[in-house]
């Protein structure tokens, strides 16, 4: 096991940020912690990277205990915090050299590992980190976290606030790193990124709600969801919520995701109901279930 977390809890005053969380990440696995702001993801990352001590429970990284063996862990893992924390006044190259030196290595020694990513920001290597765009900052931060060739990589919300293109590129980079046998623990509030992980833990209010592969989580979801669309989405949501047998109604991109309480749900009846409410262009079809649907039902 690369990462082993057992009954970890942490409170800040009255707030239980992490509540008895347990999970394991295998060597070479890409494991996602999926949950919104305030779920406890960052607290967990700080505990696993030895920057914070848990109130209860234990955790080990590559067999090293996070409290007792913190020094061994610090030199063996890479950590990219959620908040951009490189030196804004140093250039791209200076930042990278600085982190290499801290870990007693050089850029040249581990260049192969970061080459793919660094090549994209190398044209700007003399630019100050503070003057980079969001996507480039993120690439530099990843290079700095990788420069000492860590065995385990911790990435805390690397794609938050980043546009869909940069997000897509970032996940492609992670997949390539994974092929080099690096274990990756990544957190994200974007539910659509869950499907890119080998396994995920859904987390909210400090509690892990589910752990499995994204495929299994979707396969094991026992309700049928329908895509519903009409010309007026706003009144559609309102009317669906007043449909007697509704279980849940959530806007979902182009469609509204509708779930009924009854197993023998008849879409013809719903169609008639919507017609009576003066809806036009009514479409009802079975929907593809997404991780976000499962999350909202937990």
């Amino acid at each position: 096991m690369s990462i082993k977390v057992q009954n970890i809890s942490k409170s800040y005053k009255n707030l239980k940020a992490v509540d008895s969380v347990s999970f394991e990440v295998k060597k070479g696995e890409l494991f996602g912690l999926i949950g919104p702001d305030g779920a406890g993801k960052t607290t967990l990352f700080r505990i696993l990277t030895t920057l914070l001590i848990a109130d209860e429970g234990s955790a080990a990284i590559m067999g090293f205990d996070v409290v007792r063996d913190y020094k061994s862990i610090r030199s063996a893992v890479g950590y990219m915090p959620g908040k951009f924390s490189l030196y804004q006044d140093l250039t791209v190259e200076e930042n990278l050299t600085f982190f290499a030196t801290l870990f007693g290595t050089t850029i040249a020694e581990n260049y192969e590992l970061i080459k793919d990513i660094y090549i994209q920001i190398e044209p700007f290597k003399n630019r100050r980190a503070g003057a980079l765009s969001g996507g480039m900052k993120q690439k530099l931060a990843l290079c700095c976290a990788l420069i000492h060739a860590p065995k385990v990589l911790f990435l805390d919300e690397p794609t938050t606030g980043v546009d869909p293109i940069s997000r897509k590129e970032f996940w492609e980079m992670l997949k390539r790193l994974q092929q080099q046998d690096i274990t990756i623990l990544v957190s994200t509030p974007y539910m659509d990124e869950a499907s890119l992980c080998d396994r995920i833990a859904l987390i909210q209010h400090g509690v892990v709600l589910k752990i499995d592969s994204p495929e299994n989580i979707i396969k094991n979801y026992d309700k049928t969801i329908y895509d519903v669309a009409t010309k007026n989405t706003h009144s559609l949501i309102h009317d669906l919520k007043n449909y007697p047998s509704q279980y849940s109604v959530y806007a979902f991109g182009e469609f509204v995701h509708y779930t009924d309480q009854e197993n023998n749900f008849d879409r013809k009846e719903l169609e008639k109901y919507l017609k009576d409410k003066n809806h036009t262009d009514i479409k009802i079809k079975q929907a593809q279930i997404a991780i976000e649907d499962v999350f909202m039902d937990l």
Binding site: M191, Q204, H234
Partner: peptide, 24 residues
């Protein structure tokens, strides 16, 4: 300006219902 970044999925949808109501 990015009003829903990092917000949980259910609240994000409630937020959009507020937006719809206001636009209406």
């Amino acid at each position: 300006d990015e009003p829903t970044g990092g917000v949980d999925p259910i609240t994000r949808r409630q937020f959009w219902e507020m937006i719809y109501t206001q636009a209406y």
